[in-house]
Design a protein around this nucleic acid. Structure first.
Lengths: 251, 251
DNA sequence: TATGTGTTTTGATGTGGATCAAAGGCAACC
DNA sequence: GGTTGCCTTTGATCCACATCAAAACACATA
């Protein structure tokens, strides 16, 4: 495709402008990798983040075992991360939405440790890792924020360990709903009604529960007047009640 | 200080020399933060790592909520990391031995997220975080390896999620013993006999099990001829059998 | 509209590990 | 040597969630 053709295609929906300023124009910049950068620093990052990639629902952004060479910022859509065990058992280890970073698990070994699967048609910004390291050496704000994002991933995971290790089924699900609610809120979406993108089985896998248990908990919360559920659509009716669920345990 | 003086001091008690070359002389340098650095780079890191700290058994290296300003490399001893939940429930999120880094959970929020408690008299090297970030900007090998260590912490935690989410009690304990064995082996200790530093309760907390269940699993493994146990001392008799335990599940 | 496939709900039953309880072992200290 | 305070082991019982089963539902495609 010639440059002229490309430009014509892009003129209709702004792709070129976005390519030239991936982060500066992105409405996720406050919560994504560029958070806290000055305009000048933002420009430098923009030179790096110039490849977008669309991932259709059900497709993998990357798979465990593939060579790692980039991290990804979710621009739109929703992903699950999943590790598969030698014997075929697997577990969902996280869900990622806009502004969140995927792929940091690959840095340690140079090979991805999990699959990242789109749960709806999604788009990511690809960030070549070698160049990110270089740039982080020059732009201390970028370095600092990148470290923070890795650290927060560590903290997030220890939260999941807590959830898996000490909470009972209904607490886990209440905690999950509140977490999603809070993340949507931070992105300017309604914190009280949303579509879950994952199946009951995927959610159960993440929470260490069977799909039937997830379904029963949803039904229970519905009967208790805490939420409305209709398939994957959820409306939180009584958010305080939901918080009570996991404050109100035995012990 | 002349080379002669240095040698003389070292012959007596080594402390000053160690201070001046914390990492260069450390037998953990191959697995710790300085892994892969050149001699010259090592010198630069040594300027940073000049504070040792002893932590007695039962004492905290840091606690959740404290201001984060340094990460720590375990020089000797053994630590548990523990997060405490609002309602008082807590969970052990990891165990750390020589050459491993503690405190990276604090980077994200500038506040420690967990307690790090010594399970035996221990010593750590304190690494001021602000200066580490600076140095990482100059020494790319250090930057790279630091990122790897953070990434490996993420991968380690997703392994624990797997363990908590999909494994049954005996599998968890077999996996734990094999993990300890492998880490001791990497440090030049016997992989087949060792002292556990944690109580059954702490181990249970880490594995999402009650102390009685841990104890029963140890007894079972003993009866099956896989290990010998005497209090905290463990000898692995049949390492292949132990591997079978978690390969040999239902499904 | 029919048809197939995957998802969700709900009920009945089973079980792995928690809980409750008690006794024994070990180390520190007087 | 005896006391005290953990820690560990083992047995008996219980229960939260898994498992098994079946029906209802949603959604895509013909």
């Amino acid at each position: 495709m010639s440059r002229g053709e490309l430009a014509r295609q892009q003129s209709t929906h702004l792709v070129l402008a976005e390519l030239k300023a991936a982060c500066a124009n992105c409405n996720l910049r406050e919560i994504c990798l560029p958070a806290g950068l000055s305009n000048e620093e933002l420009d430098q990052l923009d030179n790096l983040v110039n490849v977008r990639r669309k991932v259709k629902r059900g497709e993998a952004l990357y798979r465990a075992g593939e060579v790692f060479d980039a991290i990804y910022a979710v621009r739109s859509g929703f992903f699950k991360s999943r590790v598969t065990y030698e014997d075929g058992r697997d577990q969902v280890t996280g869900f990622s939405m806009g502004g969140e970073i995927l792929g940091m698990d690959g840095i340690g070994q140079g090979i991805h440790n999990c699959d990242a699967i789109a749960l709806e048609d999604s788009e990511v910004c690809s960030i070549p890792y070698a160049r990110l390291e270089e740039l982080a050496r020059e732009v201390s704000g970028l370095q600092r924020h990148f470290h923070k994002m890795m650290s927060r991933e560590i903290v997030r995971e220890s939260g999941v360990m807590m959830l898996l290790g000490v909470m009972r089924a209904e607490e886990r699900i209440a905690a999950f709903l509140l977490n999603i609610s809070q993340r949507l809120n931070a992105r300017g979406y309604s914190p009280l009604e949303f579509h879950l993108r994952m199946t009951r089985e995927e959610l159960g896998s993440y929470l260490g529960l069977k799909l039937e248990t997830v379904s029963r908990a949803f039904s229970k919360f519905h009967n208790d007047g805490l939420i409305e559920v209709e398939q994957k659509f959820v409306r939180i009716i009584d958010i305080e009640g939901l918080k009570q669920v996991y404050a109100h345990h035995v012990n």
